[in-house]
Amino acid sequence: MPFNLSLAEREASGLRRRLPAIDRVTGRQLFSAGKCYLNFAGNDYLGLSQAPELINAAAAAAREFGVGAVASPLVVGHQSIHRQLESELADWLGLEAVLLFSSGFSANQALIKALLTKEHLLWQDKLNHASLQEAGMLSPARQLRFTHNDMAQLAAKLKPQSGLIVSEGVFSMDGDQGDWHGLTTLAEQSGNWLMIDDAHGLGVLGQQGRGTLSEQGIAADKVHITMGTFGKALGVSGAFIGGSRALIDYLHNHARSYVYSTHLPPPQAAAILAAVRVVQTADDKREQLQQRINQFRQGAALLPFTLLPSNTAIQPLLVGEKLGDEQSTMQIAARLRELGCWVGAIRPPTVPKGSARLRITLSAAHSKADITALLTALQQAIN
């Protein structure tokens, strides 16, 4: 079978992935094989996965609604807790309507496959998430990719009123932001639709944590489609698509992974709703996260690594005598675990060949001492 050959090839090239044996994660810490580590590999940017407000909301909803939605949303799965979540989410983000999904991967695939036909073009940033890239490949539309944040190249590829432009708010492996002033200008000039995947910006950027568009001073209605996830800064899981009521009604009828999947469990929806409410008044947590980012960047700049330009919670480090070397990256990640710090080691095909990196993610839950410990471990890992 071909999977045997594929696994052998990945093993030989040092790119085979294996599931880590994690016992449990409690915000800034994780436990594996009886040992405790500082966790710099998750996406719990505000530390809300352990917040009492979310835990209590989920428990109360489980008692009231049960633990499962029992059906797809268009049958009997869409209950009052889901409607309340959609309403408050739309109000918070300035959207006409939203649609809930089980994951960001599912949301991106459903949207692109439902919206585009073979008559359309799809323009994507080359560093867009795998869910967007794969959705483009599976879509009947013709996909055209442009160099990361290269507005001149995108402008040269655009055709008037021909399809959809998609980019991310915060790029998941580089931590930098999309050029949303440039993107909205090009979308308006060309008459094409525009979509933002703001999985890593929602909750941590902008006024009341509204995300990347708010951070860059762009009105929500300048972008036709918004996708966001609940498994990063909001600390739960799941995702949504937001836009006009006409778009959401269309997806109710054509987004197959929505129509044919059991809906979000009510306790999950309740926890997300609690997170939406907490995030809007969490300026203290966002400020604390920014302090940790600044502390890390100041310290990392003194180390013999290449620190990519990012002002977000995602802080990528290129390591090795040959920057981006997969073997060196894995060795240093293993050494960091020995020193008590769990850091993500990202290799191709998740990132382009020759750009393997340590993907360090920071949280408001981290203390100053935690960041100091990480910087000390990074120094020790190369000695």
Results as ranks from 00 to 15, higher is better:
120 H>C: 10
315 Q>V: 11
196 I>L: 11
345 A>R: 05
30 L>K: 11
267 P>V: 07
21 A>P: 08
334 A>I: 03
280 Q>F: 06
165 I>D: 01
85 L>R: 01
57 A>C: 12
43 N>V: 11
310 S>N: 05
223 V>R: 00
216 Q>N: 09
150 D>R: 05
257 S>R: 13
101 F>P: 04
115 L>G: 00
51 A>F: 11
34 G>S: 13
138 L>S: 11
295 Q>H: 10
150 D>I: 02
345 A>M: 09
143 Q>V: 09
281 T>R: 14
178 G>I: 03
279 V>K: 08
124 Q>A: 03
28 R>C: 05
68 G>V: 09
84 Q>E: 15
4 N>Q: 11
203 G>S: 05
253 N>G: 12
27 G>T: 10
71 A>L: 11
316 P>R: 01
77 G>S: 08
196 I>G: 05
162 S>M: 05
29 Q>N: 14
257 S>Y: 07
142 R>C: 06
22 I>K: 13
212 T>H: 02
5 L>A: 14
279 V>N: 07
319 V>L: 10
168 E>H: 13
292 R>A: 01
316 P>D: 06
168 E>M: 15
117 T>Q: 09
160 P>N: 05
239 A>T: 04
27 G>V: 07
299 G>S: 06
164 L>Y: 02
303 L>R: 12
213 L>H: 03
146 F>L: 01
278 V>W: 04
87 S>R: 13
92 W>Q: 07
169 G>S: 10
134 E>I: 13
198 D>N: 11
173 M>K: 12
232 K>D: 15
37 Y>N: 07
184 T>S: 04
299 G>I: 02
91 D>I: 10
269 A>Q: 03
273 L>D: 00
362 L>K: 01
373 A>Y: 05
63 R>V: 04
129 H>S: 10
87 S>K: 13
331 Q>W: 09
143 Q>F: 00
49 S>D: 09
146 F>V: 04
118 K>C: 06
184 T>W: 02
299 G>M: 09
336 L>I: 12
17 R>P: 01
227 M>S: 09
76 V>L: 10
218 I>D: 05
77 G>L: 03
128 N>W: 02
144 L>S: 04
197 D>V: 12
249 D>P: 01
78 H>S: 07
316 P>C: 07
329 T>V: 08
298 Q>G: 12
293 I>M: 01
167 S>D: 12
303 L>H: 11
265 P>V: 03
162 S>I: 00
268 Q>P: 02
267 P>T: 12
214 S>L: 05
346 I>M: 13
376 T>I: 13
362 L>N: 01
223 V>P: 00
210 R>C: 12
12 A>H: 11
206 G>L: 03
218 I>Q: 03
103 S>A: 15
35 K>A: 15
324 G>E: 07
82 H>Q: 10
139 S>Y: 00
232 K>H: 10
75 V>Q: 12
250 Y>E: 06
309 P>G: 03
71 A>Q: 14
234 L>I: 07
326 E>Q: 12
21 A>R: 15
83 R>K: 14
376 T>Q: 15
